[in-house]
Simulated scan of single mutants.
Amino acid sequence: MVEDPVLSQPLRTQLLNLIAERSRAEELRARGLEPASSAIFVGPPGVGKTRAARWIANQLGMPLYSLDLTAVMSSRLGQSGANLRYALDFAKSTPSVLFLDEIDSIAKKRADPADVGELKRLVTIMLQELDEWPSSSLLLAATNHPELVDPALWRRFGAEVTFDMPTVDLVRTSIRRFLRDDLTQFEDYVETLSKVFEGRSFSDIERSVETMRKALTLGAGTPGEIVAEFVAGGASAMTRAERISFAVELAERTSLSQHQIARMTAVSRDTIRKHTKIASLGEN
């Protein structure tokens, strides 16, 4: 069973619409419409593009094939194109979802003077394949660099789906999800961690949370000690002004004591009290 990914509501709606087109294809065809047979996912690394592709395939009850585009490249003239065609022919031979990550690595603008002829041939192959891709299968591509993708190829995709960096609410939701069975142990620190992880990708958050879970399992400390050590590591990279601001925010928005916050941020309790009082006066 593939786990439901953490998604913003607008993004979830886009993906559910894509799934609905596929699962209700006959209704569309009865009205002279065709379901999208391809889509391109756009967004920075670690925001859930691969996980979403896996989830879509599971929802559709189709196998997922993921093609490493660097594996098709060959130094032999024409061999890269042959490799690509072979992989694409295999994927469309049976109803399936094919996921091509980093599509820009083989689909760069053909007007790029720095590009080589072999890559231009790969773009041509992709153009042909997208035009002829069977409605029984779904081709999903992903890129971190949409500006590099050939415009003609871009227009061939049936849908464009944008993945953004997670909002604070989604960061909080993902922390709870990634903590899994250890959520009750770290419940008091979710708000603290959401502040630390703000601006980070889902994959970064998952990796860090797993590190903390391993530390707890191996007896490296209490949940509070593990979180304190993790937060201290992040705070050490901040300027003094940033650490003070972070400490005040923790004091105002979490249940941590000023002693705990001081230990985590290397900001004295007197400084925390002073700036918390200033912030309180400013609000009044």
Rank of each mutant, 00 (worst) to 15 (best):
M1W: 05
D4Q: 12
V6Q: 08
S8C: 06
Q9I: 15
T13R: 05
Q14L: 08
L15K: 02
L15A: 09
L18S: 08
I19G: 07
R22C: 08
A25G: 15
E27C: 12
A30I: 12
A30Y: 12
A30W: 11
R31Y: 08
G32E: 15
G32T: 09
L33F: 14
P35Q: 11
S37Q: 13
G43E: 05
G46S: 05
V47L: 06
V47K: 03
G48L: 07
K49N: 07
R51Q: 13
A53Q: 08
A53H: 03
W55T: 00
A57C: 12
N58R: 08
Q59L: 11
L60E: 08
L60F: 14
M62P: 02
P63D: 06
P63E: 03
S66Y: 05
D68E: 14
D68T: 11
M73N: 07
G78E: 10
G78T: 08
S80A: 13
G81E: 07
A82S: 13
A82Q: 15
A82K: 15
N83T: 12
R85D: 04
R85V: 03
R85P: 02
L88H: 02
K92S: 07
K92Y: 02
S93I: 03
T94Q: 15
L98C: 06
L98G: 02
I103M: 07
I103P: 01
A107H: 05
A107V: 05
K108D: 00
K109M: 09
P113D: 09
E118Y: 09
L119W: 02
R121M: 03
I125V: 15
M126F: 13
Q128T: 05
E129I: 04
E129V: 13
D131F: 01
A141W: 01
A141S: 10
N144L: 01
E147L: 01
P151V: 05
P151H: 11
W154S: 07
R155I: 03
F157W: 10
M165I: 00
P166W: 09
T167E: 14
D169I: 02
L170W: 01
L170I: 11
R172N: 14
T173S: 14
I175A: 04
I175C: 04
R176P: 02
R177Y: 13
D181L: 14
F186Y: 13
D188L: 14
Y189L: 09
Y189D: 06
V190C: 11
V190W: 06
V190H: 08
E191S: 13
E191H: 11
T192E: 04
T192M: 10
V196A: 06
S201I: 00
F202V: 00
D204E: 15
E206H: 03
V209G: 06
V209Y: 02
R213V: 07
K214M: 10
A215I: 06
L218G: 06
G221C: 06
G221Q: 04
G221I: 00
I226L: 10
F230I: 12
F230L: 10
A232D: 08
A232S: 15
A232L: 05
T239Y: 11
E242H: 10
S245W: 05
V248T: 08
L250D: 03
A251T: 13
A251R: 04
L256F: 01
L256G: 03
Q258L: 10
Q258A: 09
H259V: 15
H259W: 09
Q260T: 07
R263I: 00
T265M: 03
A266V: 01
D270S: 15
T271P: 04
R273H: 11
K274Q: 13
K274Y: 11
H275S: 01
A279I: 09
A279L: 10
E283M: 08
N284V: 11
